Simulated assay, not measured.
Amino acid sequence: MKFAIALFAPPHAPSSRRALRFAQAALAGGHQIVRLFFYQDAVHNASSNVVSAQDELDTPAEWRELVHQQQLDGVVCIAAALRRGILNEQEAQRYGRSAGNLEAPWELSGLGQLHEAAQTADRLICFGGP
């Protein structure tokens, strides 16, 4: 089965961990993830500046490792990211900011990527939605 996963929750929310575990279990079960799409406060999961407490799961690092190791399509909504100060180097330069905090393997893109993923996948699974 081909899944698209949309995450709406910040790193410290239980639904972020649930989405991560679902993605790991789906891949371990031989399923495919056509796209991960981070929207609203979930864009913080892609920030390279999030620091988790020592006794907590480092959800952003886990997401980054999963996307990198599995070569997944990890997309961060550009509008939601910019509103929350999540910028790659190109956007940081464009808006005159001193540094970016979004690095590979993440890609900034628009909501059209979520729509396309929903059309391509067998199932769109949403975590932490409104």
Rank of each mutant, 00 (worst) to 15 (best):
Q54R: 15
A53E: 12
S47P: 08
Q32I: 01
L82N: 09
Q119G: 12
G110I: 10
S52E: 10
V34D: 01
C77M: 04
C77E: 12
G74D: 05
Q70G: 01
H115Q: 09
I125D: 02
V34R: 03
A46F: 09
L72A: 00
H115T: 10
D122H: 14
A117L: 04
L114V: 08
W106V: 05
E103A: 13
I33Q: 02
I125A: 06
D73S: 04
E89M: 02
V76K: 13
A46W: 14
P105W: 11
W63L: 10
Q69R: 13
N49K: 13
R97H: 15
F22L: 05
L124H: 03
L114E: 09
H44P: 03
R21P: 01
Q93D: 08
Q70Y: 03
R84I: 10
G128K: 11
E56K: 15
N88K: 10
A92S: 12
G74I: 04
V67M: 04
G74Y: 05
P10F: 10
S15P: 13
L87E: 07
Y95D: 02
V50C: 08
L57I: 13
N88G: 03
V76A: 03
P11C: 13
F127H: 08
E89F: 04
P11L: 09
A117F: 01
P10Y: 12
N49D: 13
H115K: 01
E62C: 06
I125F: 00
S109Y: 06
Q69K: 07
Q70E: 08
F8K: 07
D122P: 02
D58W: 08
Q71W: 04
E62F: 02
A53P: 11
D122M: 05
Q24Y: 01
Q69S: 06
